[in-house]
Each structure stands twice: as structure tokens, then as C-alpha cells.
Write a protein that binds this DNA or RNA. Structure first.
Length: 105
DNA sequence: AGCGTGACCCTTT
DNA sequence: CAAAGGGCCACGC
């Protein structure tokens, strides 16, 4: 597992778009390593260069966030980029999905 | 080197 | 439609 690749891909996610842990893992060449990617995000320091808030569950839910505020902060950051969030899930998930990480069920 | 834990995901009740 | 089970991988001790 090349974690640098994962971080790189995460950094390349355009503002206002989101992807999933699984899709990210697959794009990095390790399909099924969704959980590992989540761990990488958690391990990753707060690094502003890596927009981990643009990574969510495959069903559109936000998932977790290392900060104390948790998903709350995540919602704010996403909303600031134009991503509508409701009921803990991302609206227009399909449209907002990063094209390069096609993996909508 | 082995074990436990977690920011996940899919299939099956 | 909601809940439960089992299987991924990476990390720290």
C-alpha cells in the first residue's frame, strides 16, 4: 500500500467534489483497502494540504473526523466548498462524486 | 512477529 | 428500509 499515493490522490480532489474511502483505495491500486485508507486519514496529521474532509462513506454518509468536533467541522468545511449536507449525508452525492473515482453503487 | 483496534464496505437477514 | 455479520487493510504496542 503506497500511502503517499493515497495522500496525493486525496490532495487532487477538486473543491466541491467528494469521493469515498473505497474508491480512493481502488484508485491507489488497493481495492478493498477502504479501512486502511481511513486509518491513513486518521494517521495523517491535520495537514491542510490533504483535504480529508472530502472523503466520505460509499453511501454518502460523512464518516468520521479526527477533530473533537468530529463530523460537525467536516460539515462546515464541505458546506463552505458548496457541498450540501443533510441528515449526516451528502446531497447530490452522484453529481458531487469525483469523476476519476467512479464507484457509485 | 503477533494481537487488538478502527475516520470502511458489501452481503445477507 | 434498518440491523447484523463477516472480511478487507494499515498502525501502534
Amino acid at each position: 500500500m503506497d500511502r503517499d499515493a493515497v495522500y496525493e490522490l486525496t490532495r487532487q480532489i477538486p473543491a466541491g467534489r467528494v469521493t469515498t474511502y473505497g474508491a480512493l483505495a481502488a484508485a491507489a491500486g488497493n481495492p478493498g483497502a477502504a479501512r486502511g485508507v481511513g486509518m491513513l486519514m486518521h494517521t495523517n496529521p491535520d495537514a491542510p494540504r490533504t483535504p480529508c474532509h472530502r472523503v466520505v462513506y460509499s453511501d454518502g454518509r460523512l464518516g468520521g473526523y479526527g477533530a473533537k468536533e468530529g463530523t460537525g467541522l467536516k460539515v462546515e468545511r464541505l458546506h463552505a466548498e458548496g457541498v450540501e449536507v443533510d441528515g449526516g449525508r451528502v446531497k447530490l452525492f452522484a453529481d458531487r462524486f469525483f469523476a476519476d473515482f467512479k464507484r457509485i453503487r
